[in-house]
Design a protein around this nucleic acid. Sequence first.
DNA 1: CCTCGAGTTTTGATCGTTCATATCGGCCGC
DNA 2: GCGGCCGATATGAACGATCAAAACTCGAGG
Lengths: 346, 346
Amino acid sequence: MEASSRATLEHVARRAQVSRQTVSNVLNAPHLVRPDTTERVRAAIEELGYRPSTAARQLRTGRSHVLGLRIEPVRDGINGAVLDRFLHALTERAQSHGYRVMLFTAPDDEREIQQYDELLETADLDAFVLTSTHHGDRRTQWLGERDVPFVTFGRPWDAVQGPAVDDHPWVDVDGAAGTRAAVEHLQQLGHHRIALIGWPDGSDVGADRRRGWHDALRRAGWAEDGLAPLEAAVPDGVASGEHAARLLLEQAEPTAFVCASDSLALGALAAVRGLAAPPAVVGFDDTPVATALGLTSVAQPLAEAADRALGLLLRRLDGGAGPVPDPHVLLTPHLVVRASSTPPPA
Amino acid sequence: MEASSRATLEHVARRAQVSRQTVSNVLNAPHLVRPDTTERVRAAIEELGYRPSTAARQLRTGRSHVLGLRIEPVRDGINGAVLDRFLHALTERAQSHGYRVMLFTAPDDEREIQQYDELLETADLDAFVLTSTHHGDRRTQWLGERDVPFVTFGRPWDAVQGPAVDDHPWVDVDGAAGTRAAVEHLQQLGHHRIALIGWPDGSDVGADRRRGWHDALRRAGWAEDGLAPLEAAVPDGVASGEHAARLLLEQAEPTAFVCASDSLALGALAAVRGLAAPPAVVGFDDTPVATALGLTSVAQPLAEAADRALGLLLRRLDGGAGPVPDPHVLLTPHLVVRASSTPPPA
DNA sequence: CCTCGAGTTTTGATCGTTCATATCGGCCGC
DNA sequence: GCGGCCGATATGAACGATCAAAACTCGAGG
């Protein structure tokens, strides 16, 4: 029943009494083949369990149907799960569209570019998915110059400069909308003094998340200088979050904390534990810790992000002729409310 | 300086005034080539920036230098980080040995086998790395029958049956040694009543981790029936961990908890918080939450596991002629001591 | 001087596909 | 009845590497 070695086009062709090319056409250009022939070929393919060799196809066409993704060294930890989920969704979606995801590592951007170069030359990767875009990112320019298809998960953060430099497809999650939703949720609960524990200047993502908090409070009538004492900017981490929370409590007596990450929120939780009227705490990224500890947190729609990112790539790769959708996708996160966002004391 | 299109063997050959085959030999069988020729060819390769095409090589040799790994849907969450770290280490090591890691997904084992089939036929993957081995695992048999190289991260858990059925290379972490170390650490602190929060029967990993606790206490002179009230078996999760801890506290007044996972440990931590003399808690897997919360936990040497797994594969793939090392590697985890393992009340 | 053989290099075929082009058979129009 | 065309299928070459075997080089040995 099963041939010992793999079936090839040639085998199928002989079985179906047609030529190689006709078999190939059945698979790649069915409209060129007469229905009854198609049927015969299909049957032969089925019987022989034929599967095309990607190596041969790639050699001829120059397309590998493989996407490259850099997997980063495990970061601080808590937030690592974000990329993990994105990766899974991406792999799944790609697979259902006939693409595979190939991993590589690089200690820094420069080395990552080296890997692009190597992967393109040796493995003919069709495209790349970049994560963790940042200020002054050289990778996008490199890929752009060489006309390599790619999407980034993350906006291009560089200030708009020159004529559409660095205009590439991207997908991102609207951080400001996330923190804004957090603030509004707290306001609805009756909170007024809502503090922010954010990251220091220099983080674009941090600035984005800060903006949502800032805007929501301004909209509620807070003056600029009333906001300052309600804000802390510290490096990511549980300990620094705890420290910041304590300081803010002394300084400004907030009744709630909005944090730029679950790590910081975790610290804040530790700081407020045991207080007579513990302030509410909201985190960001909805990591497993949040679930575990009942921390209200802003959840990124990672599966959708992966889906849209792939969509943008496929349009470029498989040349969808249809209406070109906006190549800049900004998704809105949603708040997952749990026990940590309590109403203020009456 | 740079050619517009990719350089091929032919180009290099012309530049170095030799034949294709000689260039190929310089790369794959240097001992066949005279030193001065080698030098000339090397220079040409350098100047043209030549990189061999993996597609062409694969077509001819049938080897892709790609390893397949199934990436699982995100589990409960907290413990997901374990595979994440393994994956990163594996990718890195593979890369440094000229291999790449390709991902795929599958909702269950049956579908995973289907993917093997497809990947082997279409993409000619060289080997697979399996994770989450379990009782009655059909995947290893399928691969074994077809003589496909693979390693598992996880022991074959099936009872030894028949003549060496299912004898394949594997790498695993000694869970019993981990819990044993946890118990001994607690004993050194002065604890005697050390409870276990484990998983229900049916989990091989769970049974393994239980064994370490059991052995250590038996060694310390506990009778079998004295052990029972000190043990709980509940599904993984923070809530069930908390519940189990409370029950055990009432039942047997332990002064310390050893847990089969960080999730359970997290629950235990919640249960003991606020007690006058809070029992010590030790988790398992040293996930980011443990770091964040100061939870003493058993850490798996994941980078080493990836390293050894790859080593076993490469021996099979690249046919190292050297001494065959034991194809069954059991690594010893180590305890990361943090604030949660306090001494018992005096 | 010729043969032999080890060491080195070259030549031709091949892996499994797709591209470009050729061929075949029938139908149309004049 | 014949050229032209179109739809369907077939043929040969090419992608870029490696394998198998031939061919060349050169010094040793008879």
